[in-house]
Design a protein around this nucleic acid. Structure first.
Lengths: 245, 245
DNA sequence: ACTATCAAAATAATCGATTATCTGTCAAGG
DNA sequence: CCTTGACAGATAATCGATTATTTTGATAGT
């Protein structure tokens, strides 16, 4: 799983994107591990949007005590995946058309802004990271019949988008983008297991990345904006199909 | 309207901007109350930036048990005011020139965007709220000799800026803006107890608000951007004076 | 039938104690 | 001297039990 940033808006430890032989994976405490499991469960749709999270049941399901459970849930609140109300407990954040549209709009605004900044101040290492992320993403297969390939693809896709904007030198902005990407991924994983026929997503990614390392600001930003927008439109249609307002 | 609004990206307890006679204040649990106290302690500078938060000492200081303490700290992490690392505990987020500059830049981007949206879709009630917030802010006195007036002014100032953008219909965006405002306020409360002589802040606020309700998009956005920018510049100078990099 | 009220059950919040992890110090070996 | 390892004290994480709050369901009154 993609490393979740630990410290509040910490400049992200930037551990070599997943090639290190031995990975400490940093998830030391029960609370941390649980947070990862729950996050995955929510993003993957295993835990239904809007459903209540009963502490007692969750405690038994995951075989943990209340303390780490609350700890984990607190982190998911930061991620915007869980909602909480005093004395009323926790529930998985709802999904809605309005929510999806806001996420899409904000991604367009923020990610494009972050990409522009990255192109302005990103160094050669950033460029290298972008090309690597692109390559790994394009090499990953995505077979709707094999869920593990979908998961892997999602992970690499997320990694690509984050790497693309990672050169901007603005940790808080990156934090926001990471949240939005998280929220967006839930919609995609729940509603979109395959790419719309009229898109060549690999090519879209390539165009964005090529433009980025070439520092072609307007072109790359425009491509990214369209890329995000198209995904939003596709998702909206799928939501509409399932009657979600 | 406003989709799933409570929970994660909820309008932050912050008792109704209004003037309702009796306020439930919503801070029911010890954890909630503690979060408020700690937030205030950090923003006001009572808890020094970068300092470690020892759980045992904090527990004794505030006369609470670990559970609500951790609960409260978890919320401050969401706010970006506290950082955390597994098995290493909590510490008050550091301040730095770079951090301040990012906050200022992002406020310019996000708040202006949210203001524009508010002017586009805000309703009459929003307009009314803006005018009220402006009035209350301008009527508040700000006497450096009396700390309680400063605190009160900060509260109303914060309320004004949030109200200004509250019509945008984008809860996540508002959540981000609220965080940034929080972070920014800490700098102001620590470093800036009085307004720079060459500014008429009341007038700046009035111009922004008047332009907003008149739906003069470009004018109002421009004024807001300058307003934020000036504050950033002032703060940067004060930080420089104190030798903070 | 409908509403109000109260008690019991369910659920969340908190506590105190226990366990796990980290950090600094000091001694032994190189 | 510097490094390494083990110990002890400090600190964080977790647990099980207790307390507080909310929700449910039954009952009585209109």
């Amino acid at each position: 799983m993609v490393p979740h940033d630990d410290g509040a808006f910490a400049p992200m430890t930037e551990d070599a994107p997943s090639s290190s032989g031995f990975l400490d994976d940093g998830k030391n405490t029960i609370g941390s591990q649980l947070a990862s499991r729950l996050r995955e469960a929510i993003i993957s749709g295993e835990l239904q949007a809007g459903s209540k999270i009963n502490l007692d049941k969750a405690r038994k399901t995951f075989n943990v005590s209340l303390s780490p459970l609350r700890e984990a849930l607190a982190r998911l609140i930061s991620d915007g995946l869980v909602e909480f109300e005093d004395n009323r407990g926790y529930r998985v954040s709802s999904i809605s058309l309005a929510n999806l549209e806001e996420i899409t709009t904000l991604r367009e605004e923020f990610e494009v802004f972050a990409l522009r900044e990255s192109m302005r101040v990103g160094d050669v290492e950033w460029e290298g990271n972008v090309m690597r992320a692109l390559h790994r993403l394009n090499r990953a297969e995505r077979d709707a019949a094999r869920p593990e390939t979908l998961e892997r693809w999602e992970e690499l896709h997320r990694e690509f988008h984050l790497t693309l904007i990672s050169g901007c030198g603005k940790p808080i902005l990156l934090h926001f983008c990471r949240l939005l990407l998280n929220l967006n991924d839930r919609y995609r994983r729940v509603f979109l297991t395959r790419t719309s026929g009229d898109r060549n997503v690999s090519q879209e990614h390539s165009e964005i990345a090529q433009g980025a390392v070439a520092r072609d600001l307007d072109y790359s930003c425009d491509m990214l904006r369209q890329h995000i927008h198209r995904t939003g439109t596709n998702l909206r249609n799928h939501l509409a199909t399932k009657g979600i307002l």
